[in-house]
Computed example of a mutant assay.
Amino acid sequence: MPHVHVCLLPTEILLDIFTIIRDDKALSWMRPFREYSTIAALARTCRAFKEPALDVLWKNMDGLGPLVSCLPENVKVTTNGMMSLRRPPFVEEWMIFGQYAHRIHSLTICYSWLNEISDLVVEALVSAPSSVMLPNLRTLEWFDDRGSSIPLLRTLLVPTITSITISSDSSPWNPSFSKSALLSSIGSRCPSIQKLHCVYGDSYESSVTVSEAVRGCHELVHLKTRVLNA
């Protein structure tokens, strides 16, 4: 049987190989994030590796910092460890952002990771062209209770999402008008949602809000919340 060079393997096989490398617990134990640097190196090795390696590298993301770092140097700036922007990105620069954003299928956002980006970055992301803000997102885990971050959460609720977890770091999501308005619209914003985990307050009004959200989720098969309003 003739030897097949690894560069000639089907894309599906390369995706499996790169996923195994990314998820290798031994590599992660020996040196944190080593598996990600390995995938990044593979993406630079040859054309055959580039696209599948980038797909695996960006598939599951923690925070938005890595995406913002893809913007050109004349746009982004770092001050006191926080990523910010010198000016709003132009259309061509959003296209660079979009080359990576469309690969993300799973995103986790928590309080500390949002603190890595400035308010200017959040404003820019909220105003970004819809084609670049995670158009293929499937799973969203949101652990932040601040009302100021709601516009960003609203932007991330795309139609492709099938699983959503919304909470604060260690307690239920505290009710507010903007949060209730957002929850009530989840079914229309994410019509394919199958899993919803949202512990939202403990009042009657909170129960009514979650009940309205659930009523609009016609594909829902898994739900974790407080007692619903009948």
Rank of each mutant, 00 (worst) to 15 (best):
I117M: 03
H102L: 13
M83F: 01
N115G: 14
C110A: 10
D55M: 07
I96T: 05
L107W: 09
W94P: 13
R103N: 05
A53M: 11
M95I: 12
E51A: 02
F33K: 11
R103F: 02
L42V: 00
A101H: 09
A48M: 03
H102N: 13
R86G: 02
E73T: 15
E93Q: 04
I117H: 05
I104G: 14
F49G: 01
M95K: 10
V91N: 12
R31W: 00
T108C: 10
M83C: 10
R31K: 03
R87V: 06
G65I: 08
E73Y: 14
K59Y: 07
C46L: 06
T108I: 08
E51F: 00
M95H: 13
A41C: 12
G63H: 06
G81N: 12
L114G: 12
S106P: 06
Q99G: 08
E116V: 07
W58S: 03
M83E: 10
N80R: 09
P52V: 11
A48N: 10
E51V: 01
T38Q: 00
F90C: 06
A48I: 05
H102I: 12
N74Y: 05
E92V: 05
V56N: 00
Y111K: 15
A40P: 04
K50V: 01
L67D: 08
Y36E: 01
R87I: 02
P89F: 10
T38E: 00
K50Q: 06
G65A: 14
L85E: 07
R87E: 01
